[in-house]
Every structure is written in structure tokens, then in C-alpha cells.
Design a binder for these strands. Sequence first.
DNA 1: GAATTCATCTGGAGA
DNA 2: TCTCCAGTTGAATTC
Lengths: 255, 255
Amino acid sequence: MSGECFTPSSLEEAGRVLKQVLEQRRFAAILCRCSVNYKGRGSSWSSPGDRLIVVKPSGSIIIHGPQGFKPENWQPDGSTFAVSMSEGRLILVSMRKNPRETLTIEIEKVYSITSIGNPVKGAFYMYMSESEIRDYLKENPQLIEDGLRILEVEKPAGPGYVDLYGIDKNGVNVVIELKRVRAGEDAVKQLLQYLEFLKRKTGRVRGILVAPGFTESAVRLAYTAGVRLVQIDLKSLSDRIASSRRRTRDLTSFF
Amino acid sequence: MSGECFTPSSLEEAGRVLKQVLEQRRFAAILCRCSVNYKGRGSSWSSPGDRLIVVKPSGSIIIHGPQGFKPENWQPDGSTFAVSMSEGRLILVSMRKNPRETLTIEIEKVYSITSIGNPVKGAFYMYMSESEIRDYLKENPQLIEDGLRILEVEKPAGPGYVDLYGIDKNGVNVVIELKRVRAGEDAVKQLLQYLEFLKRKTGRVRGILVAPGFTESAVRLAYTAGVRLVQIDLKSLSDRIASSRRRTRDLTSFF
DNA sequence: GAATTCATCTGGAGA
DNA sequence: TCTCCAGTTGAATTC
């Protein structure tokens, strides 16, 4: 379906268009002067200003002010809408239960409403997530340490889960904690918790923290606690993963 | 300045308008069919689909697909833009340094471009954050327990910080963990960690978990571990805070 | 600048 | 539903 763009001459007219847009569950953007009131888990209030209201077919609403990456207010997928006029203002209310939250938008002036019906949803892929790195390291443990063998992924360990669990060339159990970003003291503490828990269960265990970088305090704590730090280069790993992905694809297209 | 709404008849025309919008740093929404490529801390790729691109005067860009509250891709305030044509496609590139990240949008078709120049930024206030609740409970400890006195806020305790620290009517030290949302097992575990740490330092310590609700497993763990659970009603607390805020304002306006 | 914690966190996987 | 954890997390506060 094609897109539509509308510049209303009155608030009443804008209200009619807005109602249609919401009923037909169109993907829409409303540029307007409004103030917003939110009450639910928190509460917020904003004074009149120019904002962009995004309404999605899935039932979410997002309100952006002229700056910042984050929206000022929002309501997630599955919210319900109601449009009304009150005291010369166009009122858009969005409600959600569980938790019960209400978003009330008081619109003074609508600059434009643009929308599209039945929007085509494009595919979206994210690469180099922690799980992707983890799965690659599981198949290529020598990148972490020579002679290392991985036995388990996401092994439960008391308070949480161990990213990788294996055994080193000397037969000692190894707990591996993986971070996609520079690791701080907290990552070492987390690893130490797992180690303490597993020590009581399986006896001797070593810890390895794998990350692209480490904070000073992380290095210090790791040293005193006997945790080994292994630095990985994300870029070269990304290249390796990409080429292994290509290889796999070649194989499947071959057979 | 007034808003503008534009339905381009060709990609070239759309490109010219887009360039103007970006140069004039207007607050704009572009409804279009596009695919997006991101490379930086992570990398993502998306196939052609209908998306809404939001551009802000502050230099951020946000790309929304037809569902979900979160944007598919984005770039925060302070990014730079470049518009070009290539192989019959309109290309919008957004760059950011530190970290170096690039967002490339390949536009097939523009449904509409709506924008406003010099948007009015409305004020925004958020109430009832965890810190606001914490500060109110610090001044009104009887809401947690009779005879309780608060001695410290955000007291360091090994792995993290204790929300409130005080002494009960029997002279026993008390650690209070506060959650603004329904508390689960993890909140009790966190409190137990603080308790273990402080027990070694100060001797006898009790724990109180304050939250609007508790999960079944949280209740079970709290019972076996001897942690007291105190339920607070966020709504009544919100009203109390609001009225105390009003009282303070009345005082300042009086003197 | 680095480090730490909160968020109306959201979202997803798993039990 | 609850638990756990990643996130291009962002944003604020503290040091």
C-alpha cells in the first residue's frame, strides 16, 4: 500500500485522520506541538513542545523530542489507543495493562501526519553478538588456550550461568567468562563466584576471563585471585567468523 | 517556524529535500523503503523494508521498523550526515567517531518527508525514580519498620552498594535493599551478599528487602535466609512524595 | 577521562 | 509465568 502525507487545517480534521490511522493500524508519524503525561511504573510530565509521535501497527507508541537518541515517553507493543477532543485539545491516550500504564498526549497543533498501511517488514540480522563469539570459541578453543577442550556451554553454576566450561591440557577444569566489551572488576567478581560454587562441586577449577580489553582494577583483582586474562581481537575474530560462515554456506550450496 | 510535509515524485527530488533538511538541522521524519547497514561496536544488516527514519537537530538518527519499541538501528547525538546518489539509490550515511561507527541507509523509495525547523523543546520531568523513593524512605524510616533509624545511604559493601543502612530499635544493624519493581530471587541473593560481607565487618546484621511485590521464589529464599520482606505501595508513596514536594515548595515561596 | 549504577530499561531464551 | 542475561544498551553520577 502506498504512503500518505497530510497537513491538517484544523485539530478536528487532524483528529479524524489520527483515528483512521490508528483503526487501520497504519505505520505513522505525527509531528505536533503537545504535552505528555505518563503514569505507571514511574510518572512523568512534560510542558508543551514540538515532538514527533511514532505509532506502529504492532501497537507501540514512541514520543521523541528534538534531541537525544532516547524517546521522552513510550508504550511498547500491544498497547491500546483512544482519541478524543477536550477543551479545544486533541487527546491521544495509550493504555497498557500488566503493568497498568497510561500515556496521555495533549495535542495543541498538528503540523503533519504521514503514514503507510501494511508496511513491509524487512529482515534484520545482527552479527558479532556475545553468543556468536561464544559459539565460535567453543569450536575453536585453541584461540583461548592451547590444549583446551570445551565440555559445556551456559553451564548452570549456582547464582548464574558459566559461558564456557571445559578442561585444560593438564586435566584441570576451566571456567571461561566471556565479555564482548572491555571487562571491569565486576566481570572478575562474577567469574570468582562461579569458581567458588564449582570448587565445592567438582574440586579444582581454574578461571579464564576472555575480553577485548580489561580495566586496571580488573587486572589487579584477576592477578591476586589467580584468574587468567585472555585478550581477543574482535576485528580478526569477526573476519574469522565471516569466512567460516562463507565456508559453511559454500558447503551447503554444494551439496 | 512551521512544519512542512513533502511527497517526492522522484528519488532525486527526495535527495534534494533530504539534503536541505539535514543542512538546516530540521527535526524530520522520513517514511521510506530502505535497507540498512551498520558497522561499529557490532554489525548489522537488514533487507529492504518500510522504515521510518527520524533525524534530530542535535544530530541523532533513529531507524524504526513497523514493530517493537526499540529502533532497529540508530546513531546518537553529534553524528554527521552525508547524502548521495548511487546506482539509482539514495544513500544516507551517518558517521560518528569514538567509537567509530557508520550507518549506511540505502533508500529505494521515499513515501514522504515531513519536518519542522527550530522545534520548541518542552520541559520534561520524571518522578518516582529509585533514588527519589530511597531519599523519601531515608527521611521516613518508620514506613519500613517502627523504631528504625537510617545511618547511611549507598553504603559501600564489597560487591556493590547498600541502598540504606541503619539500626533497629534493638540496636541491631540493618541492611535495606530497595526495588522499585516486583523483587525476584536475585534481589534476595544480592541482599544476602551484602549481609555476608557486612557480617564479617560489623558483626550482627539483619536484612530487609523493600519492594512493591515479591515473586514466589523470592519469598521462599527470604524465609529460609531470615530476610524480612516489606511491601510498599508505590501509589501511596508517590502521593506522599508529591505532597511533601508541594509542602517544600510552599515553604520556599513563603520565605 | 574511566568506572559504576540505574532504567517506565527492552528483548530473548529457557524451564 | 519466572529467571537469567545481553545490549551498538543509553544516561547520570562520581571519582
